[in-house]
């Protein structure tokens, strides 16, 4: 149909109704997003408010969202009950070493799988992916025995050393990202006289910032929230990480709900900050690791 033959007012009506349709679809989208945000934020807000409730109000029925008395002392109480500061430092230390080790090893190995074609290249990669199918519970005892024989139990080594030997999931993620980088860049660098390691360090890595940050973020969260490894490897309370340390607030007979919630708020703050800082790269990293040149 020739649009010029449509009367002016009909066209205006149509464009108005399209605009209105868009407006309504936006309103509905935002409304849905707001409702979903509230649903997802509710447990977090409950945690934040419970962290400042007196103990008896945690148990009150019917439950109340806001405390009648704001008990800020739950926060200092955490430091009195457990060595929270020490656990915080331990967690930061373990997480940073873990992130560094994972990023370093995973990017190196991923580069190899993405760009270097050696004998049995495909088989090795399949074998690597197969290790993802192995539940950690299966290897827990044998790995524990190795660290025990090496007299490394009750040190941070069992928690961090594995990070320097790569992780199948992160290697896969990183490899997929490397595959999206045009080979022509690599060839140009080679013509300029760059060797393989220089291509990795000067070309591939700087171009892979989103995926590197994605790996770093996911690793950080993994190390920060890890409970099982500190549980089995650490014996001295002074070496506990946060995930294990705050469990002390949950006794077999008595639970200090207020301080436990306050400690939980303090534990998740770095995770939230890290996620917000790296959010842009994180989404970019995840979104682009599926595409290929």
């Amino acid at each position: 149909m020739d649009i010029s033959k449509v009367p002016e007012n009909t066209r205006k009506k149509k464009s108005r109704s399209i605009k209105q349709g868009r407006k309504w679809s936006k309103i509905i989208s935002y409304l849905l997003l707001i409702i979903l945000s509230v649903v997802f934020l509710f447990p977090f807000l409950w945690l934040v408010f419970t962290a400042v409730k007196p103990e008896r109000e945690v148990l009150t029925f019917p439950p109340r969202m806001f405390p009648s008395v704001w008990k800020w002392s739950n926060y200092p109480e955490v430091f009195k009950l457990i060595d929270f500061g020490q656990y915080y430092l331990n967690s930061i230390f373990v997480s940073l070493i873990g992130v560094f080790g994972t990023v370093l090893s995973s990017t190196l190995v991923a580069f190899g799988f993405a760009r270097l074609k050696g004998a049995g290249h495909g088989i090795w990669f399949a074998l690597l992916l197969a290790t993802m199918m192995l539940p950690s519970q299966v290897t827990m005892i044998p790995v524990y025995l190795i660290y025990s024989k090496l007299k490394l139990v009750n040190t941070f080594v069992p928690l961090t050393l594995g990070a320097f030997f790569g992780s199948a999931y992160y290697i896969f993620l990183q490899r997929q990202f490397f595959l999206t980088i045009p080979k022509s860049l690599e060839e140009s660098a080679r013509l300029d006289g760059a060797n393989t390691f220089q291509i990795f360090a000067k070309i591939m890595l700087p171009l892979s910032v989103p995926s590197v940050i994605t790996v770093a973020l996911l690793t950080f969260m993994g190390f920060w929230n890890d409970f099982m490894n500190p549980l089995i490897y650490l014996n001295d309370q002074s070496k506990y990480t946060l995930a294990l340390g705050i469990m002390q607030l949950q006794g077999s007979h008595v639970v200090a709900w207020g301080p436990l919630m306050a400690a939980s708020v303090m534990v998740i703050v770095p995770v939230i900050i890290t996620f917000f800082v790296g959010q842009k790269y994180f989404i970019q990293g995840i979104a682009t690791t599926g595409s290929k040149e």
Binding site: L150, L152, F156
Partner: peptide, 9 residues
């Protein structure tokens, strides 16, 4: 990491 092992053990 190796040093950590030393200080812990």
């Amino acid at each position: 990491v190796a040093a950590l092992a030393g200080c812990g053990s």
